[in-house]
């Protein structure tokens, strides 16, 4: 399993820059879950999440073949930025409410688990999902990136193009706001 940020991943990016299909396939496998989840909490339906996720990878390919991916820079930050920008563009073009999360769709995604796990997952997702729904987008975004996708403060700062201090403060406020929601 290739670790994100590792030498193996860097070699993979190099190959991607040389328009290597296998490298693209490996990048897809490596980042699909995270990017899907990141977009998922920003759009109302699974269909939109899936569509936008595909667009992210196509965009990455376009960047690669035009030589706009630098091996030394964080690929993870880049792919998240691409995802974030695509969602923003999507909302600009469809003029939908940005603060909606579809909880029912969130629960449906857990359908591969056993029935018992499904019920437990549903209850847990319901509780935290309802709370996240009530948070403003800025807070929800940093919470998802840090606590769900395990991105560091530095990485989040790179994606959001903010200072680390700002991200740290936002995260602290976001968690506090989440705790205060009943």
């Amino acid at each position: 399993m290739i670790k994100q940020g590792s030498l193996q991943e860097k070699i993979l990016i190099s190959k991607l820059n040389f328009k290597n299909k296998d490298a693209f396939s490996a990048i897809y496998d490596l980042y699909l879950d995270k990017i899907y989840r990141f977009i998922y909490f920003k759009v109302p339906t699974v269909a939109e999440a899936e569509d936008l996720t595909s667009q992210v990878f196509l965009k990455i390919w376009q960047l690669a073949i035009t030589g706009r991916i630098k091996v030394g820079e964080s690929f993870q930050s880049l792919i998240y930025k691409v995802a974030r920008n695509l969602v923003i563009d999507h909302y600009r073009s469809s003029a939908r409410d940005k603060n909606t999360v579809s909880l029912d769709e969130a629960i449906n995604v857990a359908r591969n688990e056993t029935l018992e796990n499904k019920i437990d997952a549903k209850l847990e997702l319901e509780q935290v999902g309802k709370k996240l729904r009530k948070l403003k987008n800025e807070y929800r975004e940093v919470i998802i990136m840090h606590f769900v996708d395990d991105l560091t403060i530095k990485e989040i700062a790179g994606i959001l193009e903010k200072k680390r201090g700002n991200v740290r403060v936002t995260l602290h406020r976001a968690l506090k706001a989440l705790k205060e929601i009943q």
């Binding site: 995604v109 997702l125 935290v128 989440l178």
Partner: peptide, 25 residues
């Protein structure tokens, strides 16, 4: 709360989507 947030990692794309989308891409 953090533990509940970690449970959101269970949200993943559908396996059918994973496979078909890869082929399409």
């Amino acid at each position: 709360i953090i533990s509940q947030l970690h449970s959101l990692r269970n949200i993943k794309p559908d396996e059918h989507f994973r496979a078909t989308q890869k082929e399409i891409l």
